[in-house]
Write a protein that binds this DNA or RNA. Structure first.
Length: 480
RNA sequence: GCCCUCAUCGUCUAGCCAGGUCAGGACACUGCCCUUUCACGGCGGCAACAGGGGUUCGAAUCCCCUUGAGGGCACCA
């Protein structure tokens, strides 16, 4: 029943892919996949000055990281100028657009005056009324000329998939530039020409484009194009409800990648920003997201980006990760941190994996690993200060740890069961709770007061290392 | 300044379109339980319909105003 749905994501290569753009891309992608449509990627680089080629690669990498694949493109607007020129010429010849010789300086003055009078700037059409001789003269003098769209009277009314019926009075809109004096098209023109040329059926984009609806619809109509369905999605805000910017948060998708978040989690989190499946589901697979996604269900209000919730969600995904997957993702992180190296990991895979598994439930992000497992690889760690005060009290602790060392040394094997038995028996012999031994021992073995079960920790550490650490702690206590 | 949009717990949201439920869930915070600690998990708690007018037997839901927040007003996209 669905016609051929075609959507597009059209980033401008003036920066990294930020979370807002990523969410727009995600919504487009979800809608497209749900309806078996095509997802087109278009690079809007008509601004020759601000666009940077290297940003394209960055944006594409972030999209791939999030698993947002596209069916066509990337197309570059900078390579399609002839198309825009043709459209502009058509509008010009039909009297729907006109040349404007006003320079930036003159326009700036006009804008300031409009502001002072307390209104919005609207071009006064002085160039529309230029006589033919005047135009001839200016052109011969080589005065640069832009092309403005002649905004007709009336109003533009369309139905937005998330906002419902919306209308705009043309009185508020001044004749806007569609072709700059340097010959490049403006966004307003290029976006319409391309969306039509690429047969885009649904334009899903941020609310910051809401006020562009009338301008673009006017161009669609002037060019005789069929209108797409518009869907303007709410913006993502910083915790203080201001615009999300580098100043108040990490905004680039790559920031989150570097911070150790999993793409599945970021994607799931982003999907729930401004949209909800309607039931109480939160952790959803890609297939479930595609299945449940729908344009009318999109919320109209802006959403605040809450990193805390992202972290929780990331932990949910870490816990869901199959062992092999977890190992494959964490090993490179451990190596990159300098804790260990490739050879060691290759030669001691089972041990490294055991340690990774020990911490799986406890890390929020995969990059929390190096710090969380540091003591397995290094012995020269410092002891947690609070822990020292609480657990390393006096010679009796040293004595107790010494007894533990003796029992460990005498142990025939170092299995989980043996370790637990030894510790519990020692506690019984000393007539104290097991905790009295466990806590100082944990601090001695890891330097920390938190972590996995001590029995598991000791088992993973092995006899040698455990005893060396206990002895180190005994010396430390005696010296203090 | 002018125009537009939006408005449910601190945050993300369900409920709104087709008025009638103790306004539901999640994060965060927090109490208890589990446990050698932390985390995980389980069971609880705190916490919202921005304010004011209407319409109606009845309003979070419909209408208006105010307030607040966001967006736009470029030869940026």
């Amino acid at each position: 029943m669905t016609e051929n749905i075609r959507v597009r994501f059209a980033p401008s290569p003036t920066g990294y892919l930020h979370v807002g753009g990523a969410r727009t891309a995600l919504f487009n992608w979800l809608y497209c996949r749900k309806h078996d449509g095509k997802f087109i990627l278009r690079i809007e680089d008509t601004d020759l000055v601000r666009s940077e080629e290297r940003m394209v690669g960055q944006i594409l990498d972030s999209m791939k990281w999030l698993g947002l694949d596209w069916d066509e493109g990337p197309f570059y607007q900078s390579e399609r100028f002839s198309l825009y020129d043709a459209a502009v010429d058509k509008l010009l010849s039909e009297g729907k657009a006109y040349h404007c010789f006003c320079d930036a300086e003159k326009l700036k003055v006009m804008r300031e005056e409009a502001r002072k009078k307390g209104g919005a700037f609207r071009y006064d059409r002085r160039c529309l009324h230029l006589s033919d001789e005047e135009k001839q003269r200016l052109t011969e003098e080589g005065v640069p000329k832009a092309v403005r769209f002649l905004v007709p009277e009336g109003e533009t009314a369309v139905s937005d998939a998330v906002h419902g019926d919306v209308s705009f009075n043309h009185k508020e809109i001044g004749d806007f530039v569609i072709k700059k004096a340097d010959g490049s098209p403006t966004y307003q023109l290029a976006v319409v020409v391309d969306d039509h040329d690429m047969a885009i059926t649904h334009v899903i984009r941020g609310d910051d484009h809401y006020n562009n609806i009338p301008k673009q619809v006017m161009i669609y109509k002037a060019l005789g194009y069929e209108l797409p369905i518009f869907a303007h999605i709410p913006l993502i805000l910083a915790p203080d409800r201001s615009k999300l910017s580098k100043r108040n948060a990490a905004v680039a998708v790559s920031d989150y990648e570097e911070a150790g978040f999993m793409p599945e989690a970021v994607r799931n989190f982003l999907a729930l920003l401004g949209w909800s499946p309607g039931d109480n589901r939160e952790i959803m697979t890609l297939d479930e997201l595609v299945e449940a996604f729908d344009l009318p269900a999109i919320n109209k209000a802006n959403a605040v980006f809450d990193v805390k919730k992202l972290e929780w969600m990331n932990n949910e995904y870490v816990k869901l990760l199959p062992k092999e997957d977890l190992f494959a993702r964490v090993k490179p992180i451990l190596i990159a941190s300098g804790l260990t190296d490739e050879d060691f990991v290759a030669n001691n895979a089972a041990w490294v994996e055991k340690i990774i598994l020990l911490l799986q439930e406890r890390v929020r992000k995969l990059t929390d690993y190096p710090e969380a497992v540091n003591y397995f690889f290094n012995m020269d760690f410092d002891y947690d200060e609070k822990g020292v005060r609480k657990q390393f009290k006096g010679p009796e602790t040293a004595h107790m740890l010494a007894q533990l060392v003796a029992r460990f040394e005498a142990a025939d094997d170092f299995s989980l069961e043996t370790i637990e038995t030894i510790i519990r028996e020692l506690a019984e012999g000393l007539d104290v709770g097991a905790g009295k031994i466990i806590h100082p021992a944990r601090l001695a073995c890891s330097g920390l007061t938190v972590g996995p079960s001590l029995f598991h920790l000791v088992e993973a550490l092995g006899k040698e290392r455990t005893i060396a650490r206990l002895k180190r702690a005994i010396e430390y206590i005696k010296a203090s």
